[in-house]
Nucleic acid binder design. Sequence first.
RNA 1: CGGGGAGUAGCGCAGCUGGUAGCGCACAUGGUUUGGGACCAUGGGGUCACGGGUUCAAAUCCCGUCUCCCCGACCA
Length: 589
Amino acid sequence: MCLFSADKRVSDSNNKYLEVRADMSIRWSESFIPTLKEQPKGVDNISHSLSLRAGLVKPLISGVYSYLPLGWKVLLNIITIIREEMNSIGAQEVALPSLSPRDLWERTGRWAGWGDEIFKFNDRKDRELCLAPTHEEIITDIASKELHSYKDLPQIWYQIKTKYRDEPRPRGGVLRVREFMMKDSYSMDVDEEGVKRSYALHRDAYIRIFTRCGLDCKIVEAPSGVMGGGLSEEFMVPSEGGEDRIIVCKKCGYQSNREIASYKRKKSDNASNGSNLLTKIYTPVEGSVDKISEFLKVPPSKLMKSLLFFNNSEPIFVLIRGDHEVSIEKLGIKGLRIAEPHEIKSITGAEAGYVSPIGLAIRTIADYSLQGEKGLVTGANENEYHFKDVDIDRDLKVNEWKDIEIPNTGDICPNCESPLSLEQTIEVGHIFQLGTRYSIPMVAFFLDSKGDQKPIIMGSYGIGIERVMATIIETHYDSNGILWPSEVAPYKVVIIPLNIGNPKIKEAAEEIWENLKEKTEVILDDRDETAGVKFKDAQLIGIPWQIVIGERSISENSVEIKSRDGKISTSVLKANAVSEILKELKVQN
RNA sequence: CGGGGAGUAGCGCAGCUGGUAGCGCACAUGGUUUGGGACCAUGGGGUCACGGGUUCAAAUCCCGUCUCCCCGACCA
């Protein structure tokens, strides 16, 4: 038969396996789009629910999904956008392996740094391997072996590759998973100025990528965490399905990752705190801020939270106001860890909740919010006892004052002094200036024009592909289903003959289909289903445009053109349907 | 890792005071329908998560294990 012939197709649809398809259009009756009428159980997240109901994905195990035809088409559309924009800044696509040896990760200290989040196993020769959670080490290894001269730089390499991370808790469907695709790119420059240029190129490309995907991003300064290095920004999309929170000032536009956001401290309003002496009081309740505050009728802001940390073997007390949380990022001490319960007990004599540096000679770091405070309550280093009327200048020695608190809603903007608010967001992209974080330990050096040996200055830049898809759903849906932005939609148009049993309707649908399928991606709903089923499915899978052919309209030789968002619904002559829909598609792009 | 919930047909669920495994949707066949998840008839489909125990008898009671979902996780 013509299985390998260049003929485009055999038109008899009974021979569908013999057709050689040159376009991406399809008949619904031949497609695999397993839609779900009912809400899947145990799913409360919008994008999770809709990606299952629209037949985009299928779960295999916790945090691992198969992508079905429709979902894969969307992901490919997102990938195409990313490729175009990455190529446009001169980035070159590569494909790096997922398998990598332990020693590569040991050189940068990230074998331990990633901890249990890295999938590790041994090969048949008992060599220790892992599935790469990211690719800085592998890229830097190549750079160290191949880039020797300033003439070889700069370079930008990128790939779209599956990453493996054994997340402690996968959640939200495809929002946080253990196996996922990432567009990751890496820049290699000769100096700071170079990395800034590469970073700016990426920043602009990311703005274009997310705009084309229909996402409205906020770019916030971010902590660099396990990646290490210097300046870094996150691309955050406001959404209730998100698990990250950012601080924003609605007045002046200040915005930041919550962990490193700053805010203006104000004195606590406590007029009556005089010069009362430090007093020990009996507090027979659980030592949490809420419980102590309730028991003593003291607002949480007058409680001094004392947290014991260890920097290697040195204990450090960290003091913050009771109504705030400490930011490990802001503390900025490498290798800092919270003390174990037995360490707290042996150093202070009491359990967590009843401790403080008062009377102990331990290095103490306090947040600016506590400066000059009197009348505070804190632990007395004895179980079920607290001190009240603590005067921080009188009763203890603070070695260092620092900005170490995480702001809350209502705290004051550091720029314009308006109230700040928290916004729930999804992180879809993250860009880093890495500096020499990887090039020095991995000996990626080059010779500059004077013959001096210098480390390559690097940057790395990521986008979560599936997360972009899920975020688009989170921000583009209604009660009937998904509303895909045109460029990522799996099909641009769905043709809906309402009654396939009516020959006139069927013929009209086939005619439009034949004329349209070479020009855009279109799906013909030729199933023998009732109108309700077809409308519901078309809306659920979110195709931006519908051409509806029913008895009413066909008797007047016309068809309806409807947009998924309900904004456009017009009747056009059947003969003009193709040109009209193409006109609408062009307007939208 | 801590807390909560759940595993019975492809999906959603009932059955749980022990006594032959059920409903709706989906699926197959025939017929009637056809502008918003149709109707009638007939039919196929199960290791009741897994392992042990109690019992004449276990989806059901007891013990253990696994898996999935949700919330929380250096915040004292």
